[in-house]
Computed example of a mutant assay.
Amino acid sequence: MMVKSNKKRGLFLGVCASLIILAGCGNNDEVAEDASSASSTVESAEMASSTTESAEVVTTASISNDPEDIITGLSAEGAWIHAITDDVTLTEDILVSGTFYDGGEESGDVYRKLALYAQDEDRNVTDEFTLTAPMMTVESPNFRIQNGTFVGDVVVSAEGFELADSTIEGNVTFDSQELMDSAKLEEGTITGETTVAE
């Protein structure tokens, strides 16, 4: 019984450490405060044995390589950030939907992120991953793909789409010129065509 408890606690601490690292992946200067706050939350959770408090910490981000978890994590029922920790191939399309906020707090900016990388404690990127799917449709505003590579076509139906040191190996189609104009693509690479739907 003690071994199982220690394993569960070790897994929980590992997830919490990952959350702290991912907290540093925000898109503004308030990240240091968010990371500090996340650290305090984790320390409090370590001292608590309640599963409710543990669940509150874990729901701030979604980290999984399981195809079903990725589909759910990027859906309207998912989290403001989804991260993978290895290359993953999906056989079905991805729908990125719902409105989310930086850090998972409604007081933050409207923001959503797909993290395709790992980083060290100094926020240096240590590894990048590839997510493959037939197609990704983006309906979440201010959706950012950070580092790594998405292999497949992307349809953008929301404003503020962004590539940050990331690559799309496929075509990107925007539903309108206004959506294309609101996108930030200069820090990324698109190997296929970038067009506006007719």
Rank of each mutant, 00 (worst) to 15 (best):
S166T: 06
T126W: 11
G78Y: 00
V138N: 13
L163R: 13
I168E: 04
G160W: 06
H82D: 14
D120T: 00
A158C: 02
E121R: 02
N124E: 15
S166H: 10
S140H: 11
N147I: 08
S166Y: 02
D165N: 14
V110Y: 13
L90A: 03
L95P: 01
Y111R: 06
W80Y: 10
V151N: 06
M136E: 07
G170T: 08
D102M: 01
V110A: 07
A79H: 15
E162R: 15
M136V: 07
V138I: 15
L114E: 04
G152T: 10
S140W: 02
F100R: 10
V110H: 01
A115G: 03
L116P: 09
T167S: 14
T126G: 08
S97V: 06
Q119H: 05
E121W: 04
N171E: 12
V151Q: 13
Y117G: 05
F150L: 15
S157L: 11
V110P: 05
I81R: 07
V88D: 08
T99I: 14
M136C: 04
A164Q: 04
I145D: 03
Y111G: 02
F100K: 15
R144G: 00
D165V: 07
H82N: 04
I168C: 05
D165C: 08
K113V: 13
S166F: 01
V138W: 04
A79W: 12
E162C: 14
V138H: 05
T91G: 13
G160R: 09
L116Q: 02
R123C: 03
D102T: 09
A79N: 15
I81K: 11
R112W: 07
D109T: 11
L163P: 03
E162Q: 14
E128F: 01
T126I: 00
